[in-house]
Design a protein around this nucleic acid. Structure first.
Length: 568
RNA sequence: CGGGGCGUAGCGCAGCUUGGUAGCGCGUCUGGUUUGGGACCAGAAAGUCGCAGGUUCGAAUCCUGUCGCCCCGACCA
C-alpha cells in the first residue's frame, strides 16, 4: 500500500475530547473517528487490526469445534419478554418500534436469538454438543459512554454459545473455551489474567473474566502471588477481621454539629473509622433496605445484592432516606429502625464491633457505645464489603495484590436459565426430555484493539504487537525525488510484497521527520529507512518500533530478518 | 440521573465581561526554495459563530428555549 493512497488521517494535536490513551492515539493515528457519543467509524487501519483479531478468534473458535453463524441485530421484543430480560435489562437496552408499533431491540447479546434457533432445530442428544458463534456489532445504551472504544454504545463482539446435554458436558465445553481464550489473548501478544467473576445480568453459575492488565483499566482485580488465585474484586470473599472484645457500655447520644462524613465524625469524636458504623440505604426494586459496614470499609453492591436478591439495586435518594428515618443523610443509623419493616443487612465485621459510633437518626447527633445485638438487631449478617489490598487469599492464605484490568472476554456457565425460559429441550437416549445446558463466551473485539493500545504505547504513539498490527512494515525513502533512492524503495517494496509481507511504502513528498513521526504514531512494528548513505553501503537501516536503536542489515538477509523480528 | 463545562474554518483555540458585521496556530490548495525526527517564503480557498425564538437600528457577544458533546459524581450517611 502506498501511504499517499491510504486513508490514515493523522493529527498533530490530541483531540480535546479524548481522555484515555487508547482513544487519543487511535484518533490521532487515523484509526477511528467518532460518529455520535459512543459510536465510532473504523478507518482502514483499524479495520485491518479488527480483521486480524477476528481472524485469530475465528481460528481458535473453529479449532474448538465452533461453527460461525450470523444472527439478527434487530431482535423482536417477544423473545426478550419470554426470557424475562425485556424488564431486567433496563435502560441499557436499545429499544425501537417498527412502523406497526411492534417492539424491537438492538441486541446487546444474543442468548434469546440463538436459543430460539436451537429450540427449533435441535431435538436429540445426537446433535449435542453444539457450539455456535458470531462476530457482530452489539449495542448497549450505556448510561455514560466514555474512554473511546473501551466503553462505547456500539461495539464488535464475538459470542459463542454452547449447547450440551448436562452439566458434565458443559464443563468440557467451558474448559475448551477457557483454553481457547487463553490461546487467543496469548497470540494477540497481550498480558492478561483470567479471574473469577460475577455473572451479572446474564445470569448463571461459574464464570471467568479475561482481563488485559493496564493501569487505566476500569475493573479492579485481586490476585495471589503465592498461588493461582485471581478474582474480580467484586466477588473476592473477605475474611472479617475481629474486633477486640470489650464490655458493652450504655448507649449515649452526642451532639455532632455538621459532622456528616466518616472522617468528620471520626475526627470530632476522636474515634478511629473502624469504630464507626456506616449506614447506607438502598432501593432494592421498590423496597428500601439498610446496609451496614465498618466506617473504614467500602460496601460491595454485588455482594449486597446476593444477600438480598433483587432485580435492581441503587442507592436511595436523600428524600427517601428522610422519609424513612426522619433525618438527613449524614446522621442516620440502625438504632431505632423498625425491623422487620426495614431490612437491615450488616457486614460480618459489624457483628464483633463493641461500643461503636453510628448516626442517631436525629439531625446533628450521633450515638456512642452502640453494640450490635443489644442496641439494634439485623436481618442478616454477610460479607458485603469490598476487599482491600493485603487481605488474605481465600485459597492459600497469602497476602493479596490488587491490580487494574480491562475486561476483554468473559466465559459463563449459563446452565438451563435460557433453555428453560425459552423451552429448548432435547431427548436423551432413554427417551427422556431434558432442558439443554448452555454456556456463553464473549470477546470484545473492538475493545481488545483499544486494550492492546492501552498496554502498548510510548510518548510517540502506538506499539502494536506484531500479530495484530495493521501493517507489518513501513518503508521510508528519505526522498522520493531522488531517483536512486526511489527506485530502490520501489524494488524493495515489491520484494517484500512477494515475500508475503504486509508493507506500506511512504511515497509522500514530505520531509523525513514527518514520515518518522507518522510511522511511530501509527505503530508499525518495523521501519525500513532508505537513504543515500545506507544505499551506498548496500545496507538497509531497520528499526523496530519497540526498540530505540537502529540496525543495519544486508539486502539479501532483509526478508528473513524481518520475518524473524515479527515472531519475537 | 445529579453537578460542572463546552459548541466559532477539517483540527486545536481566541473573541463574548463592555453588542458595531470574525481572528490566530496547525492542516488544505497554488508557486518556489528545501529534504534523516512534525521546514521556509509568497499567495489562496474555507465559517448560516450548534439550532430556534426574543431584545436591539445592529447579536458570535445579552435573554429564553432546545439539541449535541465532554468531564466529575452516583459509598453522602
Amino acid at each position: 500500500m502506498y501511504f499517499s493512497k491510504l486513508l490514515a488521517p493523522t493529527l498533530r494535536e490530541t483531540p480535546a475530547e479524548a481522555e484515555v490513551i487508547s482513544h487519543q492515539l487511535l484518533v490521532r493515528a487515523g484509526f477511528i473517528r467518532k460518529s455520535a457519543s459512543g459510536t465510532y467509524t473504523y478507518l482502514p487501519l483499524a479495520q485491518r487490526v479488527l480483521q486480524k483479531i477476528s481472524a485469530i478468534v475465528r481460528e481458535e473458535m473453529d479449532r474448538s469445534g465452533g461453527q460461525e453463524v450470523m444472527l439478527p441485530i434487530i431482535q423482536p421484543a417477544e423473545l426478550w419478554l419470554e426470557s424475562g430480560r425485556w424488564q431486567v435489562y433496563g435502560k441499557e437496552l436499545f429499544r425501537l418500534k417498527d412502523r406497526h408499533d411492534r417492539d424491537f431491540c438492538l441486541g446487546p447479546t444474543h442468548e434469546e436469538i440463538i436459543t430460539d434457533l436451537v429450540r427449533g432445530e435441535v431435538y436429540s442428544y445426537r446433535q449435542l454438543p453444539l457450539l455456535l458463534y458470531q462476530i457482530q456489532n452489539k449495542y448497549r445504551d450505556e448510561r455514560r459512554p466514555r474512554f473511546g472504544l473501551l466503553r462505547g454504545r456500539e461495539f464488535i463482539m464475538k459470542d459463542l454459545y454452547s449447547f450440551d446435554r448436562d452439566e458434565a458436558a458443559l464443563d468440557i465445553s467451558y474448559q475448551k473455551m477457557f483454553d481457547a481464550y487463553t490461546a487467543i489473548f496469548t497470540r494477540c501478544g497481550l498480558e492478561f489474567r483470567a479471574v473469577e467473576a460475577d455473572s451479572g445480568a446474564i445470569g448463571g453459575s461459574g464464570t471467568h473474566e479475561f482481563m488485559v492488565l493496564a493501569s487505566s483499566g476500569e475493573a479492579e482485580i485481586v490476585y495471589c502471588p503465592h498461588c493461582d488465585y485471581a478474582a474480580n474484586i467484586e466477588i473476592a470473599p473477605c475474611q472479617p477481621s475481629l474486633a477486640a472484645e470489650e464490655k458493652p457500655l450504655p448507649g449515649q447520644l452526642v451532639e455532632t454539629p455538621g459532622m456528616t462524613t466518616i472522617e468528620d465524625v471520626s475526627a470530632y469524636l476522636q474515634a478511629p473509622p473502624e469504630r464507626l458504623i456506616k449506614t447506607l440505604f438502598y432501593k432494592a426494586d421498590e423496597e428500601i433496605i439498610a446496609a451496614l459496614v465498618r466506617g473504614d470499609r467500602t460496601i460491595n453492591e454485588i455482594k449486597l445484592q446476593k444477600l438480598h436478591p433483587s432485580l435492581t439495586l441503587e442507592m436511595a435518594g436523600a428524600e427517601e432516606v428522610k422519609a424513612l428515618t426522619g433525618c438527613e443523610p449524614g446522621f442516620v443509623g440502625p438504632v431505632g429502625l423498625s425491623l422487620p419493616k426495614v431490612k437491615i443487612y450488616a457486614d460480618e465485621e459489624i457483628k464483633t464491633m463493641n461500643n461503636a459510633v453510628c448516626g442517631a437518626n436525629k439531625y446533628n447527633y450521633h450515638l456512642q457505645n452502640i453494640n450490635p445485638g443489644i442496641d439494634f438487631q439485623v436481618t442478616a449478617y454477610g460479607d458485603i464489603r469490598l476487599m482491600e489490598p493485603g487481605e488474605l487469599c481465600p485459597k492459600c492464605g497469602g497476602s493479596l495484590f490488587v491490580a487494574r484490568g480491562i475486561e476483554v472476554g468473559q466465559v459463563f456457565k449459563l446452565g438451563t436459565k435460557y433453555s428453560k425460559a425459552l423451552n429448548a429441550k432435547y431427548v436423551d437416549e432413554n427417551g427422556q426430555e431434558k432442558p439443554i445446558v448452555m454456556g456463553c463466551y464473549g470477546i470484545g473485539v473492538s475493545r481488545t484493539m483499544a486494550a492492546a493500545v492501552e498496554q502498548n504505547y510510548d510518548k510517540d504513539g502506538i506499539i502494536w504487537p506484531a500479530v495484530i498490527a495493521p501493517y507489518q512494515v513501513v518503508i521510508v525513502p528519505v526522498s522520493v525525488t531522488d531517483q536512486a533512492i526511489w527506485d530502490y524503495a520501489l524494488k524493495l517494496y515489491e520484494k517484500m510484497r512477494q515475500a508475503g509481507l504486509e508493507v506500506v511504502l511512504d511515497d509522500r513528498n514530505e520531509r523525513t521527520g514527518v514520515k518518522f513521526k507518522d510511522a511511530d504514531l501509527i505503530g508499525y512494528p518495523i521501519r525500513v529507512t532508505i537513504g543515500k548513505k545506507t544505499l551506498e553501503q548496500n545496507q538497509l537501516e531497520i528499526k523496530l518500533r519497540k526498540e530505540q536503536e537502529v540496525r543495519f542489515i544486508g539486502e539479501d538477509d532483509i526478508i528473513e530478518y524481518i520475518k524473524e523480528s515479527l515472531k519475537r
